[in-house]
Design a protein around this nucleic acid. Structure first.
Length: 660
RNA sequence: GCCGCCUUAGCUCAGUCGGUAGAGCGUCUCACUCGUAAUGAGAAGGUCAUCAGUUCGAUUCUGAUAGGCGGCUCCA
């Protein structure tokens, strides 16, 4: 019997995995046990580091404010948080105070010591912590600790097989400085947190994640094995901030949100309009090739359409309130006109269903693929509106495919392939799939239909060979879905396309087709959107490319810069030829000096700058300057034009001389 | 919707301990015509988000509303 300290002398080992279970280094190991080291830089090690940092934060908070009551404090991606019930919310100044208090605790090198307790002992020790008592109660109420404690975050506290408390012990005096209900494991001591941590932001969060519960004050932090890694993390955050589509949208003059119009209602400026139009045009072309029919439907409808579809039952909160056309009465009090409610549409599917139903359909007509850039309006709650990614008015690249039950698997497969190919054409080539299944509290239709639909989607997803993760309960009320999660240039994932299988709306709308044997059959419906919404996809592409769009999407593709005025006419001729070839090109004839023009157009992220001076003109050439500052001088005019046209046609990204 | 913070020129931001405001960039005008990321000079531009309240006086203090930011919850 030895402990982990004896087993693993390397100081980067912070815990161990014994027979598959994470344990403190202080735990004892028998010779028959399989004990593996957990280093601080491993995923498990980072979680332990961050969880320990959360404990130190909590101790710091209770040192500064003994009245603060503890919520939970788990590790999260890149960091940790801890929730507190305090009379007054924290302020930014508190952060500095708390970091100083944390530094003191870290420098003390307090030991984390695990202690098994009974539920009664835990209650006695934590009598002053009502939230901890609640967690102890939840664990006691169920033999299966995981059942009530659905969230991983809560199981960090009491998720183990036994209740444990971690004491923070001053190594010099042996005094217990602080303690917390916790599953562990933890670092051997606080000193290992070092100076690679930082408190990052303050927020409020509902206790146990339910808006029915009181709000606690949450403090977020980040923690890394070294200061250098912390700095690298902060640099990544800054890089992400530079790519923020809201910032780039203003800087590059792409779109804005005029306050006069209302929250979440964007307007696209001319340059943003070009990008959007190119996005749409290419999508249209590909949809036409893939056998979609284009339809158009109105933005408003009488309420009965959404009663039929069920949207009013499930989502009326998310819809703009109705326009009420009031009933009218004559002098005798008789109704001369019945009142009607009109709604702005939050979805396109009911409209497409009506198009399907507008005439008798044969199995020969299937699959019928109806596509629309459909503008929809959703009354998103005020706190969730965010740039172009969460808006109240948006345009979906929405299609509904009606097919036979026999044909649905093939159609789903080809739809998924179509989606992935098209995303790749826009430059998003790294993705995985997510399968969202029935929410037991929010669904319509029979279990059999759901099972069959879910099974079919799962098979199609698996056949794609892509990584597949499950999202239990994440489906819409009418059917399960596959969503494509794309990773962008800096590794963030975005939910992009969705493909939903629906047996229910065809039922509700009584959709039918005539089968080969003359019988009437119910078609299956597939809902799918590639961009999700054009606005959101626009935001994702902006951040993915950091505003430096591939040439085909760039609002201005080529700018001609004369070294001095006298080379203007020569450049005009070249730019004129580019324009004739359909290139968005212009000459900068302004009074600015050449250096200033280069600076302006580089900042505007124009992919090709063509610079011309005496030397170029004499040789019938131009000089390329790219967005990264690299150059290619003295390129003959014909070759230059051919290169630019080719870059557009191949949808190439051009950031430097080496086109990527 | 909830918690906290924010809103001053087109943009980024100073500032006024309550006496109606300033810079840089941008815009306009003039001069300069220049070989790889900011030429110089001058001018215009603000109901200090909106509406109330307190005050002799409010951009400044209070409240409400709108919009935004960071989270939470939500996202058909």
């Amino acid at each position: 019997m030895v402990d982990g300290f004896a087993l693993f002398t390397d100081r980067s080992v912070v815990a161990m995995r014994v027979n598959g279970e994470l344990k403190d280094l202080a735990a004892t190991v028998t010779p028959t046990d399989d004990a593996q080291p957990v280093t601080i830089s491993s995923p498990d090690g980072l979680n332990i580091l961050r969880h320990s940092a959360a404990h130190v934060l909590a101790q710091a908070v209770q040192t500064v404010n003994p009245a603060a009551r503890l919520g939970i404090g788990p590790p999260v991606t890149d960091g940790f948080y801890y929730d507190f019930d305090v009379a007054e919310p924290f302020t930014p100044e508190d952060i500095k105070t708390l970091e100083k208090a944390m530094d003191r605790i870290i420098r003390q090198g307090q030991r984390f010591v695990r202690r098994v307790v009974t539920a009664d002992e835990a209650r006695a020790e934590l009598a002053a912590e009502p939230y901890k008592l609640e967690l102890i109660g939840l664990k006691g109420a169920s033999t299966d600790a995981g059942a009530e404690l659905g969230a991983d975050n809560e199981s960090v506290e009491v998720g183990g097989t036994e209740l444990t408390i971690y004491d923070n012990i001053d190594p010099k005096t042996g005094e217990t400085m602080w303690k917390d209900l916790c599953r562990g494991p933890h670092l051997p001591n606080t000193r290992m947190i070092g100076n690679g941590y930082s408190l990052t932001r303050l927020a409020a969060a509902y206790w146990r994640g339910s808006e029915k519960n009181p709000q606690l004050q949450r403090i977020y932090g980040t923690a890394w094995p070294t200061k250098d890694e912390l700095r690298a993390y902060q640099a990544r955050q800054e890089e992400a901030a530079k790519r923020d589509h809201r910032k780039l949208g203003a800087e590059l003059d792409l779109f804005s949100f005029p306050e006069e119009i209302g929250s979440g209602l964007p307007v696209f400026h001319p340059k943003g309009g070009i990008i959007r139009q190119e996005m749409e045009n290419y999508s249209r072309k590909r949809h036409a090739e893939a056998g979609y029919d284009f339809v158009y439907t109105p933005h408003i409808t009488k309420s009965n359409l959404f009663e039929t579809s069920g949207h009013l039952d499930w989502y009326s909160d998310g819809m703009f309130p109705p326009m009420k056309l009031d009933a009218e009465y004559d002098a005798d009090g008789h109704m001369t006109r019945q009142g009607v409610d009109y709604y702005l549409k939050p979805m396109n599917c009911p409209f497409h269903n009506l198009i399907f139903r507008s005439s008798g359909r044969s199995y020969r007509d299937l699959p019928m693929r109806l596509f629309e850039f459909g503008s929809v309006y959703r009354y998103e709650k005020s706190g969730v509106v965010h740039g172009l990614t969460r808006v109240r008015g948006m345009t979906q690249d929405d299609a509904h495919i009606y097919t036979t039950k026999e044909g649905m698997k093939e159609e789903l497969t080809s739809t998924l392939n179509f989606v992935l190919k098209l995303l790749a054409d826009y430059g998003l080539e790294d993705y995985y799939l997510e399968l969202s299944t029935k929410d037991p509290k929010k669904f319509v239709g029979s279990d059999e239909a759901w099972d069959e639909a879910t099974q079919t989607l799962a098979e199609v997803a698996e056949a794609s060979g892509l990584e597949l993760v499950s999202d239990p309960g994440g489906a819409a009320f009418y059917g399960p879905k596959i969503s494509v999660q794309a990773r962008d240039a800096i590794g963030r994932t975005w939910q992009m396309s969705t493909i939903q299988l629906d047996f229910n709306l065809p039922e509700r709308f009584d959709l039918e087709y005539t089968a080969p044997d003359g019988s009437r059959q119910r078609p299956v419906m597939i809902h799918r959107a590639l961009f999700g919404s054009i606005e959101r996809f626009f935001a994702v592409l902006t951040e993915h490319y950091a505003g430096a769009f591939p040439v085909w999407l760039s609002p201005v593709q080529v700018v001609g810069i004369p070294v001095s005025e006298q080379y203007g006419p020569y450049l005009d001729e070249i730019i004129g030829r580019l324009k004739t070839a359909g290139v968005r090109a212009q000459v900068d004839h302004s009074d600015d000096r050449m250096q200033k023009k280069i600076r302006n157009h580089t900042k505007a992220k124009v992919p090709f700058q063509l610079i011309v001076g005496e030397e170029d003109q004499a040789n019938g050439a131009v000089s390329f300057r790219f967005r990264d500052g690299s150059q290619d001088n003295g390129v003959p005019i014909d070759e230059a034009i051919a290169r630019i046209v080719a870059a557009i046609e191949t949808r190439a990204q051009v950031t430097g001389q080496g086109q990527s």
